[in-house]
Design a binder for these strands. Sequence first.
DNA 1: CGCCTTATTTGACGCGGCGCAAAGTCTGTT
DNA 2: AACAGACTTTGCGCCGCGTCAAATAAGGCG
Lengths: 232, 232
Amino acid sequence: MALRIDRSIVKPLPLFSRMSDSEIDLILSHASSSRAAQGETVFVQGTPANHFFLLLNGRLKVTQVTPDGQQIIVRVVHPGDLFGFAKALQRTDYPGTAHAAAESLYLAWPTSLWSFFVEQNPALAVSALQTIGNRLEEAHTRIREMSTQEVERRVAHAVLRLAGKAGRPEDGGIRIDFQISKQDIAEMTGTTLHTVSRILSAWEDRGLVEGGRQKLLVRDLTGLSRLAEGEK
Amino acid sequence: MALRIDRSIVKPLPLFSRMSDSEIDLILSHASSSRAAQGETVFVQGTPANHFFLLLNGRLKVTQVTPDGQQIIVRVVHPGDLFGFAKALQRTDYPGTAHAAAESLYLAWPTSLWSFFVEQNPALAVSALQTIGNRLEEAHTRIREMSTQEVERRVAHAVLRLAGKAGRPEDGGIRIDFQISKQDIAEMTGTTLHTVSRILSAWEDRGLVEGGRQKLLVRDLTGLSRLAEGEK
DNA sequence: CGCCTTATTTGACGCGGCGCAAAGTCTGTT
DNA sequence: AACAGACTTTGCGCCGCGTCAAATAAGGCG
């Protein structure tokens, strides 16, 4: 709550790109900023959605638990992403749980302001629509992959997406820039950690990636892409 | 293009619920209405998204074809649903193909008006957000099911959703109110028509449903629900 | 530094469900 | 009425991948 957020921090984000300075200032004036240490929880599935958020820095995983105890990762939240906007989904509670996969910094607004902002600020409405629209398209992509592709290809796609969204170039390749376990990858692709472990081991033998405890380094991006496209 | 659309036809739709009469009239004045006969195509995947639509009557299936020729059903469009609003997804082409599963009546607007409408009309923006939000949630539900449930439960859920959205009470049970093939159900649940056929045959033996060529009647809703919840 | 927890690896095994194939059935058409 | 085309059913064999089990490794912490 302490941090003062300067306009310049959020201005480059697509969400704010079409807003005037005064509009941005107005919105920021209602925000509170918070920090979440690695592993900390930002909101919990099923609790009242009192706030919606914008991730400034770090990385979050949003998970859902099914009634019978199975868990899936709904998505990974990257810097610049809105998250927890349950109101837009016509919900009063959070459909998932968000916790920090790395030290994270985010802004929070009371949910009650969502409609106000959107109605007050057409540019925000359009941005928000595009944000959710993108998310919808990602979800469809995932459905398509799960429907039609075997596990190895799905894992390849998931890793490629992570590399694109959270990849940091490193001497040996592209480092996934936050802690990610095989279990996480399994929950992102609809398989088991055992299968993921086997697949990554095989890839490691072929020099495509390099694993480690909660670590992942992509060595051969094009090789992995070929694999994702279905070539053996 | 000929039909005149009266305000009263669209007014009950949630999309328009928060709009004034004059706003509705303005929007309708830009719409053209069309009819699609059963089997006819409304738009094709990959073609420029020149229009967005609202289904007034009938039923559409939106499909996607993967590069390697696999097909999935992205969703079924029910009366009152917006569809083909690629603009909101930041796309210039349609990500899928829509064709009529039954005789359908719909409105069409030039895509170029989308931003205009949304910015001009905050209530529409909020409605559209909720519409897409709902769709996103549906997609997540589907992902969750595909990740964690075996085929039979997924099919049960799919049939229950159809019954809810497109069910017409009939003396023997609930009739799915449009032509739907096993292939369709397979593409909605990420399996093959063979498996769907087997599952429905088994259900028919147990008196849960009654099948037919492109027909489906749900006989025992609660029994099917139990099955969907995981009870054998 | 050694213990404890958590993540990972690997093997063995079995099965759900997919691929393949062929027969059966319904509907619209000529 | 017969035919063609589309949809459905059903059997069979195989295999990808989930399940079960157990060993190993890597950090974190006192």
